[in-house]
Design a protein around this nucleic acid. Structure first.
Lengths: 222, 222, 222, 222
DNA sequence: GATGAATGAGGCTTCATTCAT
DNA sequence: CATGAATGAAGCCTCATTCAT
């Protein structure tokens, strides 16, 4: 007595709602924070009924979970090698981080919430995410460590402390990803500044040194 | 407690409770997050009654407010010049950051919550803290900018982008202050590693360069 | 199912679903009680869709209503005179009650729910059945009163209190119909024990009396 | 920092509310049934706040549980031997059942609900009572079996089937306790009729037999 | 000033019912 | 007619806040 009908169409319709829910939730979570966000707010924003949310997610927490997992997946894609990326470690890093900043900028508000719930590895215990969710999220951290190792393998980065370097880059990305430190620049410029700083440090250089830095990058010395 | 006692004594008693409340609140906020923390949890943890909290603070939010202001004040003190601090910008920075990490470590759990509420300038809109509160908190950021300017004035740091440098240092401190990136080292060692990286960057150096770096620190040039 | 088929066939198809719904509803109502039973549970159990229920019944309550009316009708049939029933009031009563117990046993779980909703005349005010429904159900009670009158007319039962006797028999049937008092015997044996007790009471008898009781039944005396 | 003050007074106040809750709940449960009864209805009826219910009971179900346990305890007391009770098994039984009917009559409405949830051992699976609760309730059944054994020991009741007799008495009490079978008589008269029927059965007796029954009771034989 | 039970607005979640496919 | 996702009213329960002791 079970009839299977037009699964393709049905599934599409389901995803339509699922996505609408995630979109609305992203906005509301970003505006009010997870706890202060009411399911009803999300429903109103998205133009669907409260019950619909519960047809797609068991509980409020699951909406956040799904949202973070999806955004993380999208975000990691920005770090992947892409056709047209420049060669050389440093230039490549600039391009990748630029993409990352660009993506984050589109979802900036949400990332604030995400961060509070472990997106970048720092989690308050009150977070609705369980260990398994967090594990997924930490993959991003691993991906960044990969980047560092590429730099080391190419002989560009110091080999001693990959973990430290990864953390530093990570923390910098984090700091600049969010509204805390507005540089006003485009994602690409922002990326260049950060990579430069990351590579060469904040120490003042003599004119001689500077003049030796060709093109886009400064070199510590000949 | 029902006899007539000197005002001094009374005040001490008041502070006894006030501090007990803040201590318990710090724990509970850190464990569950602000929204999920119930006044009753705090009361139970601290061994006092729910009503007592409301004798000292008008509302739940005020407890968080007070907590953050007090901790921030204490934290800034760690960045102040102190007798016995070494001369030279770089060594001094190491010492100051070491103190800072040490302090944060003692209140690590709480700082997770604090961060979610603007301690370091990044705030989710859902935060219970209003603009005025945040303004107070941002003073810490200003203090760090002062540090950068000291470095510039001493001719140690590049003068071009004080804001950028401050942000970078700030973001790094932030990243390493919290559990995200465990280096395992003591606060002092942690501080040294970070300062080194901050000053010199992650770029690999030739043996010649390295040999030129004396003692604990690498110098870019003689 | 989308071709043009004879009305007869259609009706059969309709009844197929209608019966499937009632069967599934009986199980779920019995397992969870009327209020706690969800339409979706019933649909899942029966392997049909939620909407299908609403094509056959206007509301949830109507499912219960239909179920009770149908079961009641079936049940009353068991009390009807049937070919092959023994003569004599007492033996006939045993046979009829035996059939009744047998029927109830097959639907035991459901009768728990039915009872809560007035099957045997006792109704909680919260019942979803209205007076009209209950009136129908009470017919069963009337049928039992008929049985008593048969006994009185045959001069076997005391004439004084037909209502009392009916109620007593009724209550006993009720008590033994449900799981409360497991006798372990077959429906027939159960019926015999109860009829015996109903007819003769619980009082201890002397040996002389007992010896006077012929065959299966005790007689009070000549 | 914990102060223990006037526990006696506090406890009394607590019980005041606890009892008010149970009283109001009894009414509302009886009027609407457990599932249809809303906590808010109970609160309004009793003149207290919704939250107060939850200060005394963890969940709605616990209110029903507590109610049933308390009523059961009270009810069993009515079956206990009491000063002034007549000697002889039969007379004593009449008195005890009379008391029982009287008590039940005062709480008649509630007992309907209670019955639906296992008060007399018959439970729908949807009942909010767990096994442990039900176990408590079954004690009443055991108490009634005691009564039967007393009768057997005194040589008044037939020894063969104590369980059957107990069940029969039990079922009869149950049937007559509730609104199903209105006899209109006072509890005492009701009790006498039932005991008579229980002892002697429904069989018609000859005039000779009847005349032999002295006083209030019929005797089977001289 | 400390206490903790009472308060009740508010949120999450359920589930009977509808309706487009 | 069957289907099952969408709907949204309604109820249980939480928890910040009050207040009598």
């Amino acid at each position: 007595m079970n009839g299977a009908s037009k699964p393709r169409l049905r599934d599409e319709a389901r995803n339509l709602y699922r996505n609408a829910i995630l979109d609305a939730a992203e906005q509301i979570f970003a505006e009010r924070g997870f706890h202060a966000a009411r399911i009803q707010d999300i429903a109103e924003r998205g133009g669907f009924a409260v019950g619909t949310v519960y047809k797609h997610f068991e509980q409020k927490e699951d909406v956040l979970r799904a949202l973070m997992v999806e955004r993380m997946d999208d975000m990691q894609v920005e770090l992947e090698e892409r056709e047209g990326d420049p060669p050389g470690f440093e230039d490549k890093l600039v391009v990748k981080l630029g993409r990352l900043f660009g993506y984050v900028e589109k979802h900036r508000a949400f990332y604030r919430i995400a961060m509070e719930n472990g997106l970048f590895g720092v989690v308050s215990t009150g977070s609705p995410l369980d260990e398994k969710d967090r594990a997924k999220l930490v993959r991003f951290k691993a991906r960044m460590l990969d980047l560092i190792h590429e730099g080391i393998d190419e002989g560009i980065l110091a080999a001693g402390e990959p973990g430290l370097l990864s953390s530093l880059l990570f923390g910098t990305v984090r700091a600049f990803s969010l509204g805390a430190f507005e540089l006003g620049e485009s994602p690409e410029e922002k990326a260049r500044l950060i990579v430069d700083l990351f590579m060469n440090g904040a120490r003042k250089r003599s004119k001689a040194e500077k003049s030796e830095l060709g093109g886009r990058e400064r070199r510590i010395r000949k």
